[in-house]
């Protein structure tokens, strides 16, 4: 199953500048694992421990924050889009 992951600019150094990376997997955790394999060095930027995202990393499946879904266990299907979004200040 092919899932697109949108890469924000602070992380494009790990993807040769690409803003989208095609990944495979059945849930968010799996596609992020695939991203780790495809973007060498990105892992510690996203994860602080096994299956534990850094505090300021927000992951969206299509338009929904995965914390409103099943976090890393959230299932994905072909054609879904995953975004990695840094937190921003209030307004």
């Amino acid at each position: 199953m092919s899932v697109k992951i949108r890469i924000p600019s602070p992380l494009r150094g790990f993807t040769n500048g690409a803003d989208i990376v095609e990944t495979e997997g059945a849930n968010i955790g799996e596609v992020l694992n695939d991203l780790k394999a495809k973007a060498n060095g990105i892992e510690p930027r996203l994860f602080k421990g096994p299956n534990q995202l850094n505090r300021f990393v927000n992951i969206y499946l299509n338009d929904e924050d995965i914390r409103f879904l099943k976090n890393l266990e959230t299932p994905v299907k072909s054609g879904d889009e995953v975004s990695i979004v840094p937190a921003i200040a209030g307004g």
Partner: peptide, 21 residues
């Protein structure tokens, strides 16, 4: 604020090391 990584004054907001502010 998270990992202490330092950069010069520039229009960046997210730490390239840990995504912290």
């Amino acid at each position: 604020k998270e990992c202490g990584h330092r950069v010069p004054v520039s229009p960046v907001h997210v730490c390239e090391q840990c995504f912290g502010p």
